[in-house]
Design a protein around this nucleic acid. Structure first.
Lengths: 338, 338
DNA sequence: ACGTGGTGTTGAAGCGCTTCGACTCCCTCT
DNA sequence: AGAGGGAGTCGAAGCGCTTCAACACCACGT
């Protein structure tokens, strides 16, 4: 292993000079810098991460807590994770992957050991048990998702309330008077995951304002449960002509079952999905959808974390990304509308 | 920040004693140990990761390289990643997430800096450009996937050759004489990803042995491309009655399109999928499938890495998991078979 | 009584890096 | 000409931990 001291000797300078060449924290004359850089290359020197972390009390690592659940909005999670990793690298950070499984213990471990300089937490619940720990931590934190109380927190999320309202608007504009919401799996609501409840709230409020009837049914992503859910919806509200789907996994089953039942999309029923662009464009019908900007969320979260580390970002800051609805082939005028 | 020295003072022992209590590398009398443990709890002490890494030259971190591509076998990747993270934790390791984007540079950075103790590399290509670097690294490596040349490497993978053969066997047993393989996207073959080519090889060889005709067509995961692929298949081989699908994303489109064309599964055509269990059981038809044991692969990879770190594992070791085919509702006797 | 071999504990020497203060030049301003 | 100051470099003091060699102690066998 080549050490900084060896580089210094090879270049004929002191260790501190090499360090300053590396960090740029002091000015170094061009000839010296070149000599040092040449020695670094020649010896194949790489700074030792542990020593660096110890001396500077900075690890250049960002911790990312992702939920363990493999059965839920996986593509979104993965997309966020990759955006986080990529953005982090562009700022000189590496990413430590923590699974939600450990919960608060993981937070304690990371903050206590100084393993990471900052944390990014996904899949935040309204009353998340990790919040008190994160508040108390030395390291800055950024949440992807919104807890009930955001005092003193930095959060990034899609504005799901506005998303719900947007969906309601779109369907109401097209003349739909009875809308069904195919939601996430019941477990998601039981955990009080913010985004699911917020979407619903946005939908309900706007539907109320517009005089549109709204029926919400949670739904697993399988064909069986979608089948059951669909029957119950049409039993209860035979006049339903508009659907809003929030569960990615339920999209294919929904389209498939509607087709089998002889209900044409968008002639008989309109469908609006809340999902990543890719899912919307690859479904059997090109879906009118509100995109979940996974990449953007990951990127923003890292940038906020880095800004907080540099001391140039307020403690409390809630970034809500404005939803955008793209009209595609799955929504149209309600039947009987001129 | 509480340091080990403070704990030592508080407990009335030397720093080294505290260290030995923590690591268990020397015997400590029960009373002393209890005193130290009590002090640790009382002061809320957490060892500093950087200092530890520096002094012991062990970071207790495993690096995991995942491909960047978000559009490909995402659920499998995610499942492996989570299994890796979980298993690693149970061995006292954390996981550093590296995206494939950086390629060899990431390998150099991690091995050079001693950031991680070992590496787990996913999505290995047959002639992977990272291999030479991994060979030269101080840190042990485990590959998930098989490169062309495995000399001196530790690899874990599903036996895809056997998987292909198994699928061919199953369909042949049911009397199918013309089989179509709906493969991964063309890009996957262009990159010479081992598993795709191996599956095909297994299929071809066994089909040849059994006198079954085999047609292979790469396919993207969208409806459009599936539609095109399907037409070409039936144009070229109208007698096709068996399908093997390897691209997860293509499964739903395939089933959907077959249904629309009036071809019943499994009465008219049989479908065998190579995918995770969950995908097979949640599709519109419960699919006969060979499971991709993502969790198992992740777990094994970590265990091998840990074993190598402990010096109790051979340098070269290829672990091929035996495929298992589960018969479900998508495969049956070929039409016209008694 | 004495050596012997465990067992439990300690002091001190680093691990490889960052960073602070100090020093030396040399240029500029008055 | 002398003060003042910026630029470039260095030495040394740690950062918090691990680990090695060494020591003290006790119980044992002879």
């Amino acid at each position: 292993m080549v050490t900084l001291a060896e580089v210094a000797r090879h270049a004929g300078v002191s260790a501190s000079t090499v360090s300053y060449v590396l960090s740029g924290k002091r000015s170094i004359s061009a000839p010296t810098r070149e000599r040092v850089e040449h020695s670094i290359k020649e010896l194949g020197y790489h700074p030792n991460a542990g020593a660096r972390a110890l001396a500077s009390s900075r690890s250049n690592i960002l911790a990312l807590m992702v939920p363990l659940r493999t059965d839920m909005y996986v593509p979104v999670m993965m997309e966020i994770a990759i955006a986080v990793a990529t953005t982090a690298r562009s700022h000189g950070y590496d990413v430590l992957l923590l699974t939600g499984e450990e919960g608060p213990a993981a937070v304690r471990r990371v903050t206590g050991s100084g393993l990471a300089d900052a944390m990014i937490v996904m899949d935040v619940e309204l009353e998340d048990e990790r919040l008190p720990l994160l508040h108390a931590a030395r390291q800055p934190t950024v949440l992807i998702g919104l807890p009930a109380d955001t005092v003193g927190l930095t959060c990034v999320d899609l504005d799901f309330t506005a998303t719900g309202a947007l969906c309601a608007d779109h369907l109401a504009d097209l003349g739909h008077r009875e809308i069904a919401v195919v939601g996430e799996a019941p477990a998601v609501y039981e955990r009080h995951t913010g985004f699911a409840e917020r979407t619903l709230e946005g939908l309900r409020r706007r539907a109320g304002e517009l005089g549109v009837r709204l029926l919400h049914r949670p739904c697993e992503g399988s064909y069986e449960s979608m089948d059951g859910t669909l029957s119950r919806i049409f039993d209860e509200r035979p006049g339903t002509t508009g659907f809003v789907v929030q569960n990615e996994a339920a999209i294919d089953p929904l389209l498939s079952l509607l087709r089998r039942q002889g209900r044409a999309v968008p002639e008989d029923v309109s469908v609006v999905a809340i999902c990543p662009e890719q899912v919307a464009t690859q479904a059997s019908v090109r879906l009118t959808s509100v995109a979940i900007p996974a990449q953007e969320m990951g990127r923003r979260a890292v940038e906020l974390a880095v800004a907080k580390l540099a001391g140039r970002a307020p403690e409390e800051q809630v970034t809500l990304l404005a939803p955008e609805l793209t009209v595609r082939a799955s929504s149209g005028p309600a039947p009987g509308t001129s």
